[in-house]
Nucleic acid binder design. Structure first.
Lengths: 131, 131
DNA sequence: CCGCATCCCGGTCGATACTG
DNA sequence: CAGTATCGACCGGGATGCGG
């Protein structure tokens, strides 16, 4: 497995597998899936950002996808879009409280990902070799 | 198999918000996104399941997608496939420890989803009305 | 600076039919 | 029972170009 971390037995009592609402989880997953949403969200959580800043900081994103993803996030109430009627125009995107909570909730998943990244890679190699 | 407690060894890690690795998160997201993965995983976590059982319990899934998703989950080391050479053939899928930990990590997200479901719905209505 | 419109391609998924 | 095979629709997303 991974590093020398402490193994702690944890009892999962909060949510019963039989009652976990698949649809509800799927809604979240689908909301933050897509190639760019998380990256944008992360930037916006660190503080208000402008369109062009995002275009630079979110590696590889196109103008089109930036616009589309921003609109969707705004629509879901995860981002607030503020237009300053200056010349040249200035638009800022800021994460809502809801988005920041979402980010917190993502930490659990991230931890899992980091711990098992190598395991998964190994599993794939083994699987592909066996087939 | 219907007690709500699962003992899962979990490694405790602290994550620096500023350093959250977008790619790593995306890997997880993409692994469990898709229409069926979570539903299948959930069933398998409750105990070993057979192909046809899944076909019935995962609402709306086709044979094809069930097979494909099972293969991917197996390849990633989240499911173990066991063939019993009986007649008729019998195949069981069981969640690995890694998958059970993943499930536990999903709890955070689920909480968020349940908490903000209405907020998001409201945000969408407001957005669509405004546009 | 900020964004929309158009075209197009590749992957995902459903429907349907066939098999060891 | 537990899959495979094939075909086609759909859609996310890249490239490019225009507009306020």
């Amino acid at each position: 497995m991974s590093q020398g971390n402490i193994d702690v037995p944890v009892q999962v009592t909060e949510i019963d597998p039989e009652k976990l609402d698949v649809c509800t989880v799927l809604e979240v997953i689908n909301r933050i899936s897509g190639k760019w949403a998380i990256g944008i969200l992360l930037e916006a959580i660190r503080g208000p950002v402008r369109f062009t800043e995002l275009e630079r900081s979110v590696e590889g994103i196109s103008r089109r996808m930036l616009t589309l993803t921003l609109r969707n996030l705004e629509r879901d109430g995860l981002l607030v879009r503020t237009i300053y009627p200056t010349v040249p125009p200035r638009v800022e995107y800021e994460a809502t409280a809801m988005a920041k909570e979402l980010y917190q909730s993502l930490n659990g998943l991230l931890g899992w990902a980091q711990q098992h990244r190598d395991d998964i890679a190994a599993a794939r190699v083994a699987y592909d070799a066996a087939s």
